[in-house]
Write a protein that binds this DNA or RNA. Structure first.
Ligand code: FES
Ligand code: FES
Lengths: 145, 145
DNA sequence: ACAATTAAAGAGTTTTATATCTTTAATAAA
DNA sequence: TTTATTAAAGATATAAAACTCTTTAATTGT
């Protein structure tokens, strides 16, 4: 596995896809999303249920229903998605799995690792979903393959 | 989970522990190691078997047997351990799980993520186990708690 | 040769992550 | 009010990761 769990990868791709497809307040269904990001539909449905419950995305049932994102949703950082799925270990945890990452009891990687972890935090916490989405709308970035 | 799998965390801690305890060519047993790094002994045994088969560490059976590391072992980069356990995804994989991370079909995170991933690669690939170990021998860093 | 010690190997079990399938509830439109 | 459409919820199923236990093989020292 990479840096994030597979579930988290699906979640991030889906969020970008929804953002990309509902700039206007329209909705997009689970089928379209799962095809658009190449993920198992039913599994993704579970993930989106979760994100929806947490208020990271929105959903509506019934005809013309589906998932969508409000301005409020779009302005949140991507780290909200990551934290919802994978938790905070990625942002706070020790590289070697010590119970507490701290400068008082640092592992051999601590100093350098902390810098890298901070960069990752800055990237995910400091950038709104919307701004990642701009490149996507420009067709400059991709969510599939 | 953090950046690395739990198995990989144990592996890295164990490697540092062995390096720390066998500077002279002596050996250290699985019991000592697992207690020293706070990991399940039998599970760690499996992990060390694997590292030993791959030549990342060495082992000897029988009385006064145990695990140890040669100069050659110590001079290898920590990335060897990570690759042996977790594979190369962490060094090469796309943040969003696209099949290929490439500048031709970049995901929305690609540019910034790649920089971070490269820093991590540089840290693990560019530093020998021995040099991480120096701080440990000085008592400046820790492997437990 | 024998007994003790140690890792290697093999064979599980348990837990967590990933994935699928079915049923229910909500909504909209006819 | 009925039907169609959609997500939510529930119930499993499968696979992978994490962990445990037992047996075997190698080595050393007596
Ligand atoms: S203590 Fe290990 S990264 Fe901080
Ligand atoms: S394509 Fe996603 S990180 Fe490179």
């Amino acid at each position: 596995m990479g840096v994030f769990s597979r579930t988290c990868e699906y979640a991030m791709r889906a969020v970008f896809f929804i953002a990309h497809r509902t700039p206007d307040g329209s909705r997009v269904g689970i089928k379209d999303i799962s095809e658009g990001i190449d993920s198992p539909a039913h599994f993704l449905a579970k993930i989106l249920q979760d994100l929806s419950r947490r208020g990271i995305i929105n959903s509506a049932k019934g005809p013309n229903g589906g998932f969508y994102m409000t301005e409020e949703n779009l302005s949140r950082p991507l780290s909200d998605v990551v934290e919802a799925i994978d938790g905070v270990q990625i942002f706070k945890g020790c590289a070697l799995g010590l119970k507490q990452c701290s400068v008082k009891n640092p592992c051999p990687l601590h100093h350098e690792f902390k810098a890298i972890r901070n960069d990752l935090t800055k990237l995910l916490n400091g950038t709104s979903i919307k701004s990642f989405n701009e490149d996507l709308l420009n067709g400059m970035t991709s969510l599939k393959k």
